[in-house]
Design a protein around this nucleic acid. Structure first.
Lengths: 206, 206, 206, 206
DNA sequence: GACTAAGCGAGACGGTACGTCGCGTCTTAAA
DNA sequence: TTTAAGACGCGACGTACCGTCTCGCTTAGTC
């Protein structure tokens, strides 16, 4: 019913709400980055962000959704548009490196572990992840694959999803299970595996 | 091989203790298999196994170690010795399939999710996993790689660990993150990737 | 007497908190009155008072402080101001009877046993008892002694504390140890002992 | 049915059993003497006495009976026969001092607190106390009273039990509740109170 | 001097209560 | 209307002792 001043009021409210939201997400990421999943406590987030616990629950159903939200945002932000480098290996490498870099970056890597591991145990979170985090990645990878096929570097019919699994799977495996470092060589090795596996002869796009 | 008065006592004690231990681990796996990580409660394990809560705590430090123990045992059980099939692709496929099969099996797959996610967030558990679950797998894979190199199917210097990552990583990625099915084709695709990547020409061991 | 915006808030909060507190103390006394010290369980208090266990622990450090609080309140409530009866024997008798009556009353007597026994074994509780329960009693008795001395019924220099010990000690002894009844005669006998001991001739205030 | 050699067998058995029993009681007293009632645990007694927990439970129903047994023995041991000193005050003082001394002695005083406080909360223990610990005391005091009456120092009809309450009550009150010291003056004051109360004139047996 | 039975040690076990932690709800005052 | 502040119900945690039980060993007394 209110007219006129309603819009600026809403704007102001949103501005305040936005500040709250941001403070909460920041605090969440800081806590996640500590590497101990148990450090992420709603009360700790509230204390660190200077926000009331109630305010957090008003916006997120529970701390796991909050955690997921905090990191999905991170995963979506550093997106460059996929560049045509004229070289399939380089493009695959660029993609693999973007995955490695994101997960290796401080504080994103440690901050990812808890939410990602929660994805594994909560179908609802998994659904959010699959719907919000994966498709953009596939969209980014698809043109690379397409050009690779066109160049004759990749087999016709190569599925984007399969390549993505092969590139991302080992990275996550290191992050979550083996604990091996996410170093510079990993991206190259993965790109190489896509092109030639571990066969003696260098792959077609060498 | 010690005989004498000590042994029967120990045996009997162990028999009783063993029954307890088994009941606890079984209950743990059943709860884990329900797919909801929060279903795994020490009290629930106690109730389901008909064992006192204290007995559980007498044997495991907390429910996470219990969970890890329950699944590590599962991971270690289905071990066949790696057979020389005379065909690198077949051997890689056999290995990949063993991973897929184990994680796909009911109730082991779902039961793995919770502990695996905990491994990701607890360095102590991660260490246990790396020390107890990974080496046997690498030991199993190593001769396959060695024979593959000898046959000229794999590049000299191919690292067991890298191959393992490439074979296991995508499987875990599906299980934990993407939720894609662990089907029959996955093993073949992974073995193929090792041998030829996604290049048009069939790999050396085709 | 502070007014303003703060007070109603506090009042309302206190009203709720007060209801909780009262329910807890009531349940505590009921359980104590059962005569079996082991019946006093925080969980039982919670169940009986319809309050969460945590709420109890938010207010009292442990069940012993709760028990002490529950009975100290009882000991402090029935305080009349010490009346000048013009007769030392009567005044001493009134005091002694007030002790007897309080400890004999249902449910206060049985309810006292457990906390009192705990006072005996916990210096911290003992301190609370001495600081909160004893001084009011001495304050009550002091004018009686003073008037008794003034009347020539009591020796100059008679210590309040000594008289109190002599009046209260046997009552507690019956309650806690001998189990003898806390009857009507006890107060009179104690008052008489103060005035004349058990000597043949009636004491000065006879 | 067995005759003859049965008795020595029992004797030897009893000798071993006696050693056990003694070790247990000693350990119990040591733990009680620490002043913290919670220090008395069956496991601690077992550990300290070098005896298996089972052995303790074979002889005592629970730790409270054990504790009571440990101190009742102490209360019964230091009995001198009541001497005719020819002076009622001296004899009363001797009795009062024996109570004070026993409860003040290390480690008996602190060791008494826990069991005595348990007497207060367990009718079964109270019964044991009344039946085993009190009568000997009364028997000891009775001749003193009798002689006091004969000498004209005490009123005819003075009840032993009343005098005992008046002498022992304040001592226990200090020990258990007020925490006041069990010093030298206490006995004298109590004996004096019996004889003259707190009246100005010295009592008949001064 | 072997045999038997009783007591003892060791310690796992089922169980009760403890006191703590964090969740997510709810109420209330103030902005 | 939204927020901060925080009490509350709740469920699980991991711990401490309890008192019971089983079982092998030792020891004491019998044959």
């Amino acid at each position: 019913m209110r007219t006129g001043p309603g819009t600026p009021a809403t704007a102001k409210r949103n501005r305040r709400a936005g500040r709250c939201r941001q403070a909460i997400l920041d605090a969440t990421r800081e806590l996640l980055a500590q590497g101990d999943a148990r450090a992420l406590t709603v009360q700790a987030v509230a204390a660190r962000s200077g926000v009331a616990k109630t305010t957090i629950y008003r916006r997120w159903r529970d701390k796991r959704e909050l955690a997921l939200d905090a990191v999905v945002i991170d995963m979506l932000q550093p997106f460059d548009e996929p560049a045509d480098a004229g070289d399939t290996r380089k493009e695959l490498l660029a993609f693999a490196d973007s995955v490695v870099t994101m997960l290796a970056a401080t504080p994103y890597g440690p901050a990812m572990q808890a939410p990602v591991s929660q994805i594994a145990t909560d179908p609802r979170l998994a659904r959010v992840y699959r719907e919000r985090a994966v498709p953009p990645r596939l969209d980014q990878l698809a043109p690379v694959i397409k050009r690779g096929i066109a160049r004759g570097d990749l087999r016709a019919g190569t599925e984007v999803r399969s390549v993505h699994e092969l590139l991302a799977g080992p990275v996550f495996y290191r992050l979550l299970l083996s604990g091996a470092p996410l170093d510079r060589h990993l991206g190259a090795r993965l790109a190489g595996a896509i092109l030639a596996g571990f066969t003696p002869r260098t792959g077609g796009a060498g």
